[in-house]
Amino acid sequence: MEAFTKHSGKVVPLDRANVDTDQIIPKQFLKRVERTGFGQFLFYNWRYDTEGNPNPDFELNQEAYRDGSILLARTNFGCGSSREHAPWALLDYGFRVVIAPTFADIFYNNCFKNGILPIRLPEAKVDTLFRRVKDGVTQTLSVDLENNRIDDQNDFTAEFEVEPYRRYCLLNGLDDIAITLQKDDLIRKYEERLPDYYRTTVTQNS
């Protein structure tokens, strides 16, 4: 995973609440067996009409927001399924940061596994940002994970909080599987203590 320390980029406002993973990456694109190449399908049903032409009303298609890398969204962003294809699609498109008042749990967690920083800001701050972005006052934001701050170099700043361990992993781009594998002794001991009725093992021939 790529480490995340600082990032500056253009903000794309997506003024909808409860954006679900079916919208982020519709199911017809979940059949691939690779991790890459999902960006072209991001928000597909909103981005393109049924003939496959870009929908000019959709934010991602608007000139002002082209090549954005910071997504500004409303409450409960990423609700719905556990598909990691959602952060893969956001990342592949070029998003490194998503800002919203609240996120759905699994999506939030999946972001950290892929080097995307989801930032929770109070609803009032998010409101302000939406207004500023739409008025063109705020166009880009600088996100600094080392100091937990964002600012637009134009008198908007905000502090945010990330749970310390998640922050540490993201700052260092750590592979958490390798970390857990180091605990092999502990895992082995635990497995020896497992009560019989949890050992309902299923083998290929059962």
Binding site: E84, I106, N109, K113, T180, L181
Partner: peptide
């Protein structure tokens, strides 16, 4: 509970 694919890999590799 549901998990993402990175965590699926984590459980496959470590059972944790």
């Amino acid at each position: 509970f549901g998990i993402g694919t990175s965590e699926v890999e984590h459980v496959l590799a470590t059972q944790c």
